[in-house]
Computed example of a mutant assay.
Amino acid sequence: MTFDILNSDTGSEPAESYRLHLPAATANDLAGPSVEPSLVYGFGDPDNGFGGGWRLSFTSYDFATRTLRYGREQLVLDIPGEAPELRLTRTGDTLRLMHRSGLVEILSPAEGPETALVSQTHAPSGGSISYTYSDERCLNGIFDDQSSQIMRIEHGSDQVRFVYPQGATDQFTATLTLHDGLLTTATFAPGEDATWSFTYKDGQLATVREPHGYVVVYENGKRASVRLSD
């Protein structure tokens, strides 16, 4: 597995203030589709199972605010509605998000009647993946057409682990540590120096200490500075 790291993602948009890319996973014997999740912090976002403010970058729709989140994008969109590169429709309680690329995402109700979360992704090539959630509506698994699990997310009281099964052996690629409901560290590739640490002020993200020595400082919901650690 490989992973990509985005140093600091902000300044102009306080709604999304920091992003870490997690390892990608490809379904159906590498035929696709692929999932490329990111762990994203948003000021004012609730706890989605990864600590207050943190969420995964998978597609969701908030009926109360008419907000669609997908990938790195966020926009207000009615149902039915169209935006550049996509179209959103509804059949009963199910939403269908069609991308110009041919990718189709199915969103199903979750977190009560106000939110729909992605439940299936269909690639133009014909392959698909499905998403499963816990009773607390936290994502806990992604499966392909062969019912093979390509990603498992284990939620504990003070730790979350992202597991990429490979045959009979599980490869642990990311571990999140939480304290008092807040994400304090994120470690990639155990055994290597790849740990991010996070501090908070009044429950909001205050600093991010990156493994290569930089510290990102936030004030009033925006990035204030980036400096080398002491």
Results as ranks from 00 to 15, higher is better:
H179R: 10
W196I: 02
E111S: 09
T67R: 13
D47T: 12
L103Q: 07
I79P: 01
P124S: 04
P37L: 14
W196R: 02
V216G: 01
L228A: 14
A186I: 09
P46R: 05
L86N: 01
G92I: 07
G203H: 10
H179V: 03
N7W: 06
V35H: 00
Y218N: 04
A206V: 07
F188C: 05
A116Y: 00
L178A: 07
E85P: 01
H212F: 13
I79N: 02
E13W: 14
A31N: 05
I5P: 00
G92N: 10
T187Q: 12
N48V: 05
S12A: 15
L183D: 06
F63A: 12
G167Y: 04
A110E: 09
T115P: 02
K201F: 09
G156F: 08
T173P: 00
V208H: 04
S101W: 03
K201N: 12
R223D: 00
G71T: 03
P165G: 11
R223W: 01
P33F: 03
T185L: 03
I153L: 15
F43D: 01
G167W: 05
D9V: 15
L68K: 02
H155V: 10
V226H: 07
T65C: 07
P190N: 10
I5Q: 06
T187N: 10
I129F: 00
H122E: 12
D47F: 12
G71L: 07
D170M: 07
I129R: 01
R55M: 11
D29N: 13
T185N: 04
F3T: 15
T89F: 02
T115F: 03
G44L: 09
A189M: 10
E210Y: 05
L176V: 06
S60Y: 08
H21R: 05
M151Q: 13
L20P: 01
H99Y: 13
T173R: 01
Y131I: 00
G44N: 11
A224Y: 10
T199W: 05
G42P: 05
G81A: 06
D144S: 06
Q166K: 05
P190H: 06
Y218Q: 01
R72P: 01
R223A: 06
E136C: 06
V40M: 08
R69I: 02
G92S: 08
G53I: 12
T65M: 08
W196K: 03
T175D: 15
G44Q: 11
E219G: 11
P33N: 04
R90N: 04
H212R: 13
L228E: 14
G203S: 09
C138P: 01
A27D: 00
R96F: 02
S17K: 07
G42D: 00
P109R: 06
R69W: 02
Q146G: 08
G156Q: 08
T10Q: 07
S130R: 15
D93T: 13
E192G: 05
N28Q: 05
L56S: 03
E154L: 15
G44M: 11
V118M: 14
L182D: 03
I153K: 02
F198P: 02
T169H: 06
A206F: 10
G11M: 07
L176T: 02
I106S: 14
F162L: 15
D135H: 08
L75P: 00
E82R: 11
G52R: 13
S147M: 09
H99Q: 12
R19G: 01
L117K: 15
A206H: 14
G156L: 10
I129C: 00
R209S: 15
R223Y: 03
D170C: 09
A25I: 04
A83T: 08
G102I: 02
R72L: 09
I150C: 05
